[in-house]
Design a protein around this nucleic acid. Sequence first.
DNA 1: TTCGTATTTTACTGATGAGTAAAATACCAA
DNA 2: TTGGTATTTTACTCATCAGTAAAATACGAA
Lengths: 113, 113
Amino acid sequence: MTDPLSTTLAALADPTRRAILARLSTGEASVNELAEPFDMTLAAVSKHIKVLENAGLVSRSKQAQYRPCALDATPMREVATYVETYRRFWEQNLDQLDAYLRKLQTPDSNTKN
Amino acid sequence: MTDPLSTTLAALADPTRRAILARLSTGEASVNELAEPFDMTLAAVSKHIKVLENAGLVSRSKQAQYRPCALDATPMREVATYVETYRRFWEQNLDQLDAYLRKLQTPDSNTKN
DNA sequence: TTCGTATTTTACTGATGAGTAAAATACCAA
DNA sequence: TTGGTATTTTACTCATCAGTAAAATACGAA
């Protein structure tokens, strides 16, 4: 699983990590700040951050003993591009659902019952 | 990891499974047909399909001894929606890169060297 | 230097994932 | 019924992941 898209998707496939990214979308934060909402060791959060960093979704800087995290959404672009190639399929399904619902509401279609 | 988005992302975070979906985007296929391109046991492919089915990305039907697979991209909608919330961040990064490259190309900015 | 705060690393545990081989199941056809 | 094709299940192995506790590291401040 060394391809970047797999790495990005795997990193995103965890609610804790997505919450960290959501927090970072409001601005930089230290590990302590990021860990605060979670019922989890600091070390555990540190490892989640490492996964995100490894996927290129988080970048780090250095300020004294702090190593603040910043969001880097760039790898999500590939995810967006990937799922977009399937858009027509889910929209097609919605169209079918829509047609089905319309059919149910059309009196004529139910005359046999 | 029981939330649907995590399940979908985890299912997509594997090149074999994405290849299966790509194949299914061209139409239904049996497990044997799906397994053909892979250097992997039929049982292994069967399990990958189970993961996709579990994520709602693949639906099955029954035709004699065949249990053909069909693509259902519906769960990808949530993925698309999710990454879209970060679009402004990666576009911002592109803008910054663009500005940076422009700056490099502007003679005035390098007069000090 | 010594302390305190921030963060990571290490060693370990338990759960889960990918893969295999071989047996089991399902269903059609002769 | 017997055989054949399609597919899944089971039991097992190996690797990876999430989490913890405790030690280690990094760095500013007194």
